[in-house]
Amino acid sequence: MSPIGSVNPLQATALSRIDAPLPKIGLPQTTPAITGPSEGFGPMLDGLVGQVQSKQAAAQEATRKVLLGDSDQLHQSVIAMQEASVAFTMMVEVRNKLVESYQELMRMQV
């Protein structure tokens, strides 16, 4: 039996699922009205900072559970710490770009 000519039964069922017809998705009958932003720039930034803070709190809680022996999910703790780190780094970069943009506006002559 050559590996090229043989078909694994699991692969055959996976292929039959791929060939299955897709369900029809109905489009909404009415189009939503285009409106302006519902919140300002400040509340949006507050929300982003809150998300970063919640990721850091979740990472600290996961790490605390691992250190106390309440959980053996070390990999989840490391993943949570990396997510918090990336979110914090992104927030700092956004802040740096905002400060740079503000400084550029202040240098413009009117």
Rank of each mutant, 00 (worst) to 15 (best):
V86Q: 12
K65D: 04
K55H: 12
S38Y: 14
V7W: 13
E100G: 08
T89A: 12
E100H: 06
D19V: 03
G36M: 07
G50R: 14
L105E: 06
D70W: 01
A33N: 10
R17I: 07
A57G: 08
M91T: 03
E39V: 13
M108H: 04
T13E: 12
T30I: 03
K65S: 07
L105N: 04
L22Y: 02
V86N: 14
Q53A: 05
V86R: 10
P23F: 01
K55R: 14
A80K: 07
I34Y: 09
P21Y: 08
G42I: 02
G50L: 12
E61F: 06
L10W: 04
A84W: 02
A12W: 11
N8Q: 08
Q82I: 02
L67F: 14
G69F: 04
T13L: 10
F41M: 10
F41E: 12
P23S: 03
A12L: 13
Q73I: 02
V49A: 15
L48I: 10
D72R: 13
G42T: 06
P43R: 02
L68V: 13
P32I: 01
Q103T: 11
R95E: 09
S2W: 01
S16W: 05
A14R: 13
Q11P: 05
G50N: 11
L105P: 04
V66Q: 01
I79S: 11
M106K: 14
M44C: 07
R95T: 05
M1T: 08
F41S: 07
V7Y: 13
T63H: 02
P32M: 04
G26F: 03
N96G: 11
Q11N: 15
L27F: 01
G26Y: 05
S6G: 05
S77I: 04
Q53P: 01
K97R: 14
I18M: 04
Q109L: 10
Q73F: 02
A20R: 09
G5I: 11
V86W: 01
P28N: 00
G26P: 02
L10I: 09
K97G: 08
E100Y: 03
L27H: 02
R95V: 07
G42S: 09
R17P: 06
T35D: 12
S54L: 09
M90F: 09
L22Q: 05
Q82H: 06
D72A: 15
S6C: 06
